[in-house]
């Protein structure tokens, strides 16, 4: 069975675990860097991006994560996760993993009172995806090799570059498992053919 990890330093870990398990994969809750070696794909959950990047550095995850990216092992980043994967962050902050050729603007819709939900069409996933945006970022620029999967009011809110998938909203907060299923399919396709 496929093994997918959820980075469990902080944030909506349990919801991602449930959404993945509903798609028939083994889920590993990742609290130590060496656990990354045992999984075929990884989810960066929603949470506080500032906090997560500090904890990633402090607990020595950075190099293991970079290797994960270099090996082109699939990663799905939601909200804070998308911020961690970007090549560029709008504003003065340094980018982090640079896994995807996207520029991301944090808290682009405003503070919590501006947080919202909406129904979106997500390419290859579904026409009626309920998207919950919480202090959400937008993907303000995408490179040529990046596919835009969804937009909201003309702003990119979901994108894919090969094995890497990022979205501004939180599919883990709904009962709809299609976005996770889409990621699981990416992980499955990325597996070496045996025999």
């Amino acid at each position: 069975m496929l093994k997918i990890g959820v980075l469990a330093l902080q944030g909506a870990v349990r919801e991602h675990v449930q959404s993945l398990e509903a798609n028939d994969v083994d889920v590993v809750v990742i609290k130590r860097p060496e656990q990354l070696q045992e999984v075929d794909g990884l989810v960066f959950p929603g949470g506080e991006s500032t906090t997560m990047r500090r904890l990633i550095n402090k607990y020595g995850f950075f190099e293991e994560l970079q290797q994960f990216v270099n090996k082109e092992k699939p990663i799905f980043g939601t909200c804070a996760g998308a911020i961690l994967m970007a090549r560029e962050l709008i504003g003065d902050e340094d980018p982090f993993l640079k896994a995807m050729d996207i520029a991301v603007e944090r808290n682009a819709f405003g503070r919590q009172r501006e947080s919202f939900e909406a129904t979106l069409k997500v390419e290859s996933v579904g026409d009626d995806i309920e998207a919950v945006f919480i202090r959400a970022p937008i993907i303000s620029n995408v490179g040529q090799s990046v596919d835009v999967l969804a937009t909201f009011n003309g702003q990119v809110v979901a994108a894919q570059q090969g094995p890497f998938l990022a979205c501004s909203f939180h599919p883990e907060l709904t009962e709809d498992r299609r976005f996770h299923q889409y990621f699981v399919d990416i992980v499955r396709k990325q597996q070496p053919v045996v025999g």
């Binding site: 944030g11 909506a12 939900e117 919480i134 907060l173």
Partner: peptide, 21 residues
């Protein structure tokens, strides 16, 4: 159509704080 201040948006914000201080 976008809706602010729904239960999912308000409770969701706290979900993002889980495991934290």
């Amino acid at each position: 159509m976008q809706q602010t201040g729904t239960d999912r948006v308000k409770r969701g914000m706290a979900e993002m704080q889980k495991g934290g201080v």
